[in-house]
């Protein structure tokens, strides 16, 4: 699971009003190289919830993402930053671990890189 995916998932257990962002519990992180595409990064940047993303990147052991969202102009000019953003967003994968619902603490397991968001009968 990439942090891009993490940024789009939330807990939808019955009764939970704000299931975003899910807390990450790390067992194993892997890196998978992806070709960088600057246009993609600029395109996706405004759609990212920055706080959730930068917190998640730190939990995954990567400290290069600032806590405050950078100015969009940084994405235009700063190639070094784009590279780091790319790495955190697309190359770090949570291979084993779990996602925790911020309200109930319900654990959504992540195995072989796939988060299982399926709810049980009494949670629907």
């Amino acid at each position: 699971m990439r942090l891009l995916t993490h940024n789009m998932l939330s807990s939808n257990i019955k009764g939970v009003t704000n299931g975003f962002p899910l807390k990450i519990q790390v067992e194993k992180v892997v890196e998978k190289q992806v070709e960088i595409n600057h246009d993609f990064l600029r395109n996706i940047f405004p759609k990212i919830d920055w706080k959730a993303f930068s917190d998640a990147s730190r939990i995954m052991g990567y400290d290069e993402m600032p806590e405050e969202p950078p100015e969009p102009s940084v994405l235009e000019s700063n190639v070094e930053f784009l590279g780091k953003f790319h790495h955190a967003l697309l190359e770090l994968h949570l291979e084993e671990g779990a996602l925790l619902c911020p309200e109930t603490g319900r654990k959504f397991p992540v195995n072989k890189g796939i988060p299982n968001m399926l709810l049980l009968e009494d949670e629907v």
């Binding site: 891009l4 995916t5 940024n7 789009m8 998932l9 939330s10 939808n12 019955k14 009003t17 704000n18 975003f20 962002p21 595409n37 993609f40 919830d49 697309l90 968001m117 399926l118 709810l119």
Partner: peptide
């Protein structure tokens, strides 16, 4: 860049209002 989901069919079943889906808003 691609992304997929499966079996959790509520991904496409959002008939329960904006606060009640897998995707954040």
């Amino acid at each position: 860049m691609t992304m997929g989901a499966d079996i959790d069919i509520r991904v496409v079943r959002d008939g329960r209002g904006p606060d009640c889906n897998v995707w954040s808003n």
